[in-house]
């Protein structure tokens, strides 16, 4: 089915099973996520969306009792779960933005460079430049340029989330996973982050978990609809949200938007 002019999918997930102790959270996920597109993951709470992001970023094992109990995930054609680059490199390349922004206990400047500093040692002048670049990218530069040395926790929550996105971007990831990045934010900050996603999508692949169907419409072109640990519906965002085939998905989409 793979012809020469379709690129290798970013992620190829086959029959993925994840358990937390005795509880199956994901059972039998099958999907290809296209490169150079924004993929939205939708679905009710507790249906395994965040769990899938943890698998992709290789941080699942930090959750007690959690493990992949079956299936395979390929990243750019290579097995993700035993990738030759190792777990730290994978985490660098497949960055994640958490639901709740968590600035680290250091200055705004050091927050931005936290991961980047670790992965490549840079000279001070170059560092200043990068701080400028990434804060500019998330639209925070004008707001914080006079207080780069004050603690990151002093920012408003919407600014903190953009700081956390800048921190992930400074790592120069190939993919950015976002776990309901706007759920704690006001409409204005949400709009800024959505704009940012639209700007970024030409440079890197983005996978965003969201509860907001309208947001999925605005930012994504590919869409996975989760129900109880499996994918109930997938395809082009417009198709999934306009005429879903699955009755439960239909009910949710109509209920929320109709």
């Amino acid at each position: 089915m793979e012809s020469n002019n379709t690129p290798i999918p970013l992620f190829e997930i086959r029959d993925l099973h994840v358990r937390y102790g005795d509880m199956a959270v994901l059972h039998g996920i099958n999907t290809d996520m296209p490169a150079r597109e924004v993929t939205a993951i939708l679905g009710p709470s507790g249906c395994g969306k965040s769990t899938l992001l943890r698998v992709l970023n290789r941080t699942l094992k930090l959750t007690p009792m959690a493990r992949v109990s079956g299936g395979t995930v390929k990243y750019q054609g290579e097995n993700l779960l035993s990738h030759p680059l190792g777990e730290q490199q994978i985490r660098k390349r497949i960055g994640i933005v958490q639901q709740r922004p968590l600035p680290f206990p250091m200055s705004i400047r050091d927050n931005v460079m936290f991961g980047a500093d670790y992965h490549n040692k840079t000279r001070a002048a170059e560092k200043d430049e990068q701080v400028h670049t990434y804060l500019d990218k998330v639209g925070l530069w004008e707001e914080v340029k006079d207080r780069l040395k004050s603690p990151g926790s002093m920012l408003s929550i919407g600014q903190q989330q953009r700081l956390c996105i800048a921190r992930s971007l400074a790592n120069r990831p190939e993919v950015l996973l976002m776990d309901e990045p706007c759920s704690a934010l006001d409409p204005d900050s949400t709009a800024k982050i959505e704009d940012l996603i639209l700007k970024l999508k030409d440079e890197i692949a983005i996978v965003i978990v969201t509860h907001n169907l309208a947001q999925a419409r605005r930012v994504s072109s590919n869409c996975l609809f989760f129900l109880n640990g499996t994918i109930a519906e997938q395809g082009k965002t417009a198709g999934v949200l306009n005429n879903p085939a699955h009755p439960s998905v239909q009910a949710i989409v109509m209920g929320r938007e109709g």
């Binding site: 970023n57 941080t59 930090l62 959750t63 777990e87 730290q88 490199q89 994978i90 985490r91 660098k92 390349r93 960055g95 994640i96 958490q98 968590l102 680290f104 936290f114 991961g115 670790y118 992965h119 956390c164 921190r167 992930s168 790592n171």
Partner: peptide, 9 residues
């Protein structure tokens, strides 16, 4: 989780 997800040791 937030710190290690950046790939640091």
């Amino acid at each position: 989780e937030s710190v290690l997800s950046l790939g640091v040791d």
